[in-house]
């Protein structure tokens, strides 16, 4: 059983997940370097699938490489680049390599990336993909063919608590839960009030759904501005932008904002841990986890 599943389903321990930096070049050395940074702190780490519509090393290859370097992968599959056959073969390929944590996402549109002229696929949507994955765990492909033994997936998804329509996001989380998702990694959210309303709502109607809100570590107001302008579904309120912009030490202020958002998120109902996205790429991830009261699995030298 995956550590992620064991911890979320059979314990009350807080769970921390992170995002693996996408691999383009750098070979296994870059995988090793990234894994060494994250392994002491995180229970599982996302192997992304062409994030922000940019081509990178494939989700399956990344997940396998991560596992080789001691990380437990959560393999993401997005619906933008693959039709229903390719999505099922991603899942079967993951199962072949013993990767069982699968997270299914709609995915950013091709226009968010550097190849906007590409054909967008979206043959199925994330909720349909979750339902297909759940049926696979019962030993059936979408067409009804038998898979024996059935893959033992632990299924997750993503939801954006900060995007309209706010009330419906709770119902959409329920829809994902009913389709088969056991955990949700939430999109980065700079509105504590929206996150709180979402978590309270989900805890009420789907109390078994495990929520992992995302906090992002950036170094400056420019980093926040980039997310606000370029990343689909993320809005950074002017109060936060101004606060970081006007600080004498922007890096420190941005860090403090992330810590405040994280501390608040961890108090919310239904929340079982955090997902951390690190765009600082420095040692501050160690400080961040320590400041949240975590201890590393082993001493970092």
């Amino acid at each position: 059983m995956s550590v992620l599943r064991e911890k979320l389903e059979n314990s009350n321990d807080a769970v921390f997940t992170a995002e693996f930096a996408s691999i383009t070049g750098g070979g296994m050395a870059s995988v090793q370097k990234n894994s060494a940074r994250l392994a002491p702190w995180f229970d599982a780490v996302n192997a992304t699938d062409n994030p922000a519509a940019h081509a990178h090393t494939s989700n399956t290859a990344t997940a396998i490489a991560m596992a080789m370097h001691g990380l437990e992968p959560i393999m993401q599959i997005v619906c933008r680049d693959k039709n229903r056959l390719a999505i099922q073969s991603d899942m079967l390929g993951a199962a072949l390599h013993g990767i069982t944590n699968i997270s299914l996402l709609t995915g950013d549109d091709v226009t968010a990336g550097d190849e906007p002229e590409a054909r967008r696929v979206f043959d199925i949507d994330s909720i349909q993909a979750i339902n297909i994955a759940r049926a696979m765990t019962n030993g059936k492909t979408l067409s009804g063919r038998t898979i024996r033994p059935a893959p033992d997936f632990y299924l997750g998804a993503v939801e954006n608590a900060a995007a309209a329509p706010f009330d419906y996001r709770i119902l959409r989380a329920l829809k994902k839960y009913r389709a088969g998702a056991k955990f949700l990694q939430l999109q980065i959210c700079f509105y504590p009030d929206r996150l709180e309303a979402f978590c309270k709502g989900v805890a009420k109607i789907a109390p078994d759904l495990k929520l992992l809100p995302t906090v992002v570590l950036v170094k400056s107001a420019k980093g926040l501005g980039f997310m606000n302008d370029k990343v689909a579904g993320i809005d950074v309120p002017a109060t936060i932008l101004t606060r970081v912009q006007s600080a004498s030490d922007q890096s420190n202020e941005a860090y403090k904002v992330a810590l405040e958002l994280a501390s608040h998120a961890l108090t919310l109902p239904g929340v079982r841990g955090l997902h951390v996205t690190d765009f600082r790429h420095d040692e501050s991830i160690n400080d961040f986890m320590s400041d949240l009261g975590r201890t590393p699995k082993w001493q970092i030298t």
């Binding site: 950013d108 226009t111 979206f122 949507d125 954006n160 995007a163 329509p165 959409r172 829809k175 579904g233």
Partner: peptide, 28 residues
């Protein structure tokens, strides 16, 4: 534009505008 059938994606912009066509309100 993403031909979604089960509700809005996570890319909806502040104010309810479409991720792909910012001038259009999200149909969902």
């Amino acid at each position: 534009p993403k031909t979604l059938r089960n509700g809005p994606c996570g890319g909806v912009r502040e104010g309810g505008w479409c991720e792909v066509k910012p001038e259009m309100q999200c149909i969902w």
